[in-house]
Structure formats: C-alpha cells, structure tokens
Design a protein around this nucleic acid. Structure first.
Length: 622
RNA sequence: GCCGACAUAGCUUAGUUGGUAGAGCAGCCGAUUCGUAAUCGGCAGGUCAUCAGUUCGACUCUGAUUGUCGGCUCCA
C-alpha cells in the first residue's frame, strides 16, 4: 500500500470554492427541474467566480425567470438536502438516463463507454463528469443525487445544500452542445457563487468597478475613438488623441526593432485573390475576406494578413545566404469580415492594424531570430507592467488536414519553439490545436478588465509558406535552398492592444503615453497672458520626448478654477498647472498631480525636467 | 452566423393600461474673476436607430433591417 498523504488541515480555498460552486450548479439544476420537470441537462461545471449549467427546455428560460429559479434554489438550500453518491455500471446508467429522458446524459455516457473520460472532458469542456484518468472506455460511473435531482458526476460535492454559500444567477446565454456549432444550442445559465455573502458582494462590486475601466466607455469619455453606424460595425474611428496614443506605441516598438535590423516595407491593401490561392489562405479563409471587384473582372480582396505580400518582396530578386536574415516590418491595416456577433469594442474589429514583421532566415538562424523577437517583446512590455501569460500553440495531430505540412515538420518546429522558451527561462503552457495552419507559435496573452484573455504578441514559425511560394536563397555551396520564415507581432493588433492598455491603466496613462500631459489652469482672466506664455514654453520644451514637446493644453474657459481642475481630473491629465498672481510673479507653476497630490510651486525648468525624466524613463509614476 | 437582452438630444437618462417627449451634464449667450474635484441665469438641441405593419392615433404593440451588450462558435 502506498503511503497515504496527509490531508492539509485547511483545504486550499480554490478547491473548496470550486467544489461548492459545482454543488451550486447541481442545486440550480435541481431547482430548474422542480420548476420545469421536462428540462434536459447538458453539462454544468464550476468556473471562475461561479458556475454554469447547460439546459434545454421547450420554452426558453427568460431573464425574468432567474429570480424564480434563485428563490427555488434558496428553498432547496434551506432543506439541507444531502449530496448522495451512487455508483452504477455504465450500461445500467445509460438505461436509467434513457428512462429519465436525459438525452444529453445518455450521449455523454455512450461517449464515456467508447472513448473514455479524457475525450469527454476535452469535448465538453467539463472535467466534472467523471474521473479523468484513462483514455479508454469506462465501465462504471458515479452519480450524485440531490433531492429528486440525479446527475452524472464525479464529484466531490459538499455534504448538503446547507453548506452552499452565497450565489446569484447572472445571465443566460446560448451554448452549442459539445461546443460544436452544428449541434443544437442549449441555454447556458451562469451564476456567481462564493463562500460568504461578503465575498459575493465584493465580486459584484468588482464587476461594477470593471465597468468603469471598460475601454469602450473610456474611449468615449477620454475622446480616443468612436464608432459610426454609417461607417459600420467593427470599424473604429480614431480621434486626434487616440491617434496620438497609437503613434506613441508604434514609435516605441519601432525604436526597439529598428536597431535589431528590422527594415520597413510597404504594401497595398488590395490584392488579387491569386495570392491567397497560392498561400493556402484562400481555402481556409475565403468566406472571411472582404471581396472587391474592379473593371477588369479580376477577383480582388482587401488584405486580411501581410505574410503573402511580404514573401513577394522577398521573391522579387535572387537572394544570397549572405543577406539573410531579412527582416521586413510594417505597421499596417488588415481587414477581416468577422462575424457580427463576435465584434467587441476595439478588442475584436474588422479593421485591424498589425505591427507585423516577417523574418526570412537560414534554418540555423531560427533560434537566434526567435530570441531576438522574444527580446523585443520583453523590452516592449516592461514599462507597462502588464502580466502576460505565455502559450506554446501547437497543432492538433488528430486533425492533420487542418494544417499544412508534415508531422515531422510540425514536431521539429514545435521543439524549436520549446527550446526558445527554455532558453528564455519562460513559464509557459502548451495547447494543442491553437497553432496557425502554417506553423506553431508562441503567443502572449493579457487580460481585460473582466479578466477575459486576449492574445497580443506572437512569434510564429513557418516552414510552409516559403515552400508554397517557392522561396529560395543561394547557399554557400552555390545550390538553391529554402529559407525559413518567422511571423511576429509585438502589440499584435494595435486596436486590441489599446483596448487592453486602456483597461490596464483605467484610462490614467503614464506621462509618456498621456495624450495630454499637462493642462495650464489660469485662476482668473488676468492670468491668461501668463498661462499662454507657460503653454508656449512647455510646448516647445522637451526635445527628448518621442513627440518632440510636452503635450500641453490651456483651459481659458470662463469657469471657476475648481471646475477646471475637476474637468482635468476627469480627463485623467497627469499634471494640472495652476497659475495665479503668485506664479506669474515668480515665473512658476503650481503643480497638482492627477492623484490629488499637491507638489507646490515649481519653476518652469524644474517642471520641464520632471516631465522629461518621466517620459525618457517611461515611468509609471508622476 | 447562433442564443438572449437592449436602442429616447453629443453623453447619462425619465417617460405602463397607445393620445405627437422631460431632466442633468456637455454646447451657445450673459453675469461672475474665483487658490486645488462642479458659480448663477438664459437659449438652443429629439422625424424617440431605420423601414414596414396594426390602429382614428404608435416612443409605447407586431415584423424586418442596422447597431450595441453578454455568451457560444470562429480567430490567418
């Protein structure tokens, strides 16, 4: 007998929470079943901050029903019903579920019987169904019974419903059965659940706070971008301030990549579709392109990516091994006809500006080049203090037809990227099926205010497109050889990066990024002349800033100083420069920081020096 | 694309048994000239997203379209 591990005295709270949430999902299902006895149940796992259950009813559940369900849940909770575990041979289980008309459970059980629990967990996204261990067939399964509700489930659960904490049903959504859009769509009921009422309230409060950081709201309040129904969905329009922010980000990344040998190129936004028929994108993405036709009858489309164009710059002349690596970079827009239901603020758009680059190199240069890119990613993200998670996105070897190239190619390329991660000492996780169709990638993701993950930077290895476009270089021995291609983006999409950035800072940008860095606030009209003088001096003062000056505005509205300070606060302007009689006399400014701190009177050179330092160091403080 | 919800002035929004819209902020005009988060008064601004339909009459009811939000699916 193996040594028993002692249970820790205090359960890790995550595990405890997750168990309670899972039990709450059962409680909700039990309540739904009492109200609508003909409800059919899909899967119902615990998730971040709560749980969900997928349910099918002849009459859809409406938001008004949520209160009713909650009330029934409380009733059942107060009865302190036990969670009772039963084991059944799989065939008996199938028969029982058939008797109850639970068609989805029957389907799961059959799947378990044939393919085992790993396959089921993978397909449903729910590993609570049964113990995840073997990938072979399962011979017996466990059920949990709560009151009249019996559910296929591996557990564990709390002992009885009285131990369930505070919960609230949050929303109803559609979700395809087994995650496949060809299947029927069930109703997914989401709930939040916490051990205590206080924790639940805290969570709801955090959600409210997150709304204030929503980039869509801040984009409007801070006048960064806008949308127009006339222009169309997913097509953001950038205001002067938003455009300035974009330029600052682009120039930052340019300042990092240019010294590393990246050369700018430029390509048209239209192309004949032949380009994508050659690259292989056509077969996969033709429905997601904006198609354009001209006079000639030739088929054109808006470019949805830049790699094929860049290969044609490479292919425009004979290349020698001596000129490799070639690193073509370009910050440029691509256009993708994303499904309307997926569009979301700047996070998911149809006009996407990529800070794209393609490196063409010798096979033996791949590591070095990938490491260079990794270095740029590190340097770029450092000043923001954003938490990035790193994913090695691999192909799905069970679906080779979704990808170009051979298993050998894929395994080799994946191993190379794994080496890169090891060399960097990165912490990463690996996911099959997340690769691009032409190669594996290292993806860097960040989260928004609601902690939804978004992919930003990416490093992709590609042996396929060089082959498709028959790219060559002349090797030292005089023979022609095939270069390797790396695709990379640092921000990813400028729009998406901005969405994450805005939420990361809650709109309060550090000095180097703030579209308006300082605002001069004259106390009374008689101070306007001095205020103008201050503005002029600052606007031409800061040669080391990326934009060549301090970005300063003057608020000469005939309003109270208090009002002007309030407005500047709401605009999250880092420095408020109050000038009155005293300052005019001393040639100074009274500096108030965005965080409310009063720096007192500073001479102009002192203030300029301060801003200069914050900009040059990309400081996060003021 | 699918499921569900929503759409009133630039922004936030009031407006239930269907009788042609009311406010705050922003804007404009005037007064106020102020020491660290909203001075006061006035004016203007709406074919109630669009298009059909029901009705004597539609912001209100029905349908379609467009857009937005939360999910699902997809994501080069």
């Amino acid at each position: 007998m193996s040594q028993q591990l002692e249970k820790p005295a205090v359960q890790p709270s995550e595990e405890e929470l997750s168990r309670m949430r899972h039990s709450t999902a059962h409680l909700m299902a039990a309540a739904v079943q009492q109200i609508w006895p003909d409800a059919k149940f899909g899967v119902g796992p615990a998730v971040k901050s709560g749980f969900y259950y997928d349910i099918e009813l002849p009459q859809p559940i409406t938001p008004d029903d949520l209160g009713k369900i909650e009330q029934k849940m409380r009733e059942l909770k107060n009865k302190k019903l036990s969670y009772e575990r039963l084991e059944l041979p799989i065939d008996a289980a199938i028969a029982e579920m058939e008797r109850l008309g639970q068609v989805y459970k029957v389907e799961l059980l059959n799947l378990l019987k044939e393919k085992g629990s790993t396959a089921v967990a993978k397909e449903t996204g729910d590993d609570d169904v049964v113990e995840v261990n073997a990938s072979g067939g399962v011979s017996s399964v466990s059920f949990y019974k709560t009151g009249d509700f019996v559910d296929l489930c591996r557990g564990p659960h709390v002992e009885n419903t009285g131990q369930i904490g505070a919960f609230k049903l949050m929303s109803i959504a559609g979700a395809y059965w087994r995650g496949n859009e060809k299947n029927k769509q069930l109703q997914r009921l989401y709930g939040a659940a916490f051990l205590t009422k206080e924790a639940l309230e805290q969570h709801l409060w955090l959600l409210e706070e997150a709304k204030k950081r929503d980039h869509r709201r801040l984009g409007q309040e801070l006048d960064l971008f806008a949308f127009s129904d006339l222009v169309g969905a997913g097509l953001p329009l950038f205001t002067p301030k938003g455009t300035l922010l974009r330029r600052l980000l682009e120039e930052f990344v340019q300042s990092l990549q240019e010294p590393l040998g990246y050369q700018r190129v430029q390509i048209p936004h239209l192309t004949k579709t032949d380009l994508y028929k050659t690259s292989g994108h056509w077969d996969k993405f033709q429905d997601d392109l904006f198609h354009v036709s001209g006079k000639s009858g030739e088929e054109f489309c808006m470019k949805p990516m830049n790699c094929p164009h860049h290969t044609q710059i490479y292919a425009s002349r004979k290349r020698s091994y001596r000129e490799l690596p070639l690193r073509f970079s370009e910050t440029t827009a691509v256009y993708r006809d994303e499904l309307p239901g997926t569009l979301q603020g700047l996070s998911r758009v149809r006009f996407i500006t990529q800070d794209d680059a393609h490196v063409f190199c010798l096979p033996e240069q791949v590591m070095e080049e990938a490491l260079r890119i990794y270095h740029i990613v590190d340097e770029f993200y450092k000043p923001f203090g954003m938490k990035l998670s790193v994913r090695l996105s691999m192909w799905d070897e069970n679906q080779p037809d979704k990808y170009l190239g051979t298993a050998e190619m894929w395994n080799g390329a994946q191993e190379q990227l794994r080496e890169v991660l090891k060399t960097r000492g990165a912490e990463w996780h690996e996911e099959a099926g997340e690769a691009a169709f032409y190669g594996p990638k290292i993806d860097f993701t960040a989260t928004d205010a609601l902690e939804r993950p978004w992919q930003l930077a990416t490093i992709q290895l590609d042996f396929n497109l060089p082959q498709r476009f028959d790219l060559k270089y002349v090797a030292p021995d005089g023979h022609e050889a095939r270069p390797v291609m790396l695709h990379r983006a640092i921000l990813g999409s400028v729009e998406r990066f901005m969405s994450v950035l805005i939420e990361h800072y809650a709109g309060a940008f550090p000095v180097w990024l703030a579209p308006v860095q300082a605002i001069v606030i004259p106390i009374a009209d008689r101070h306007n002349d001095y205020a103008i003088e201050v503005q002029k001096k600052l606007a031409s003062a800061n040669p080391s800033s990326l934009m060549g000056s301090i970005r300063v505005e003057l608020d000469d509205a005939r309003e109270s100083m208090q009002k002007k300070i309030r407005n500047a606060q709401l605009q999250k302007i880092p420095y408020m420069l109050v000038v009155g009689d005293k300052e005019a006399e001393q040639g100074a400014v009274a500096v108030r920081l965005r965080n409310g701190q009063d720096l007192g009177s500073l001479s102009l050179p002192d203030f300029i020096g301060r801003v200069n330092e914050k900009v040059v160091t990309k400081a996060s403080d003021l």
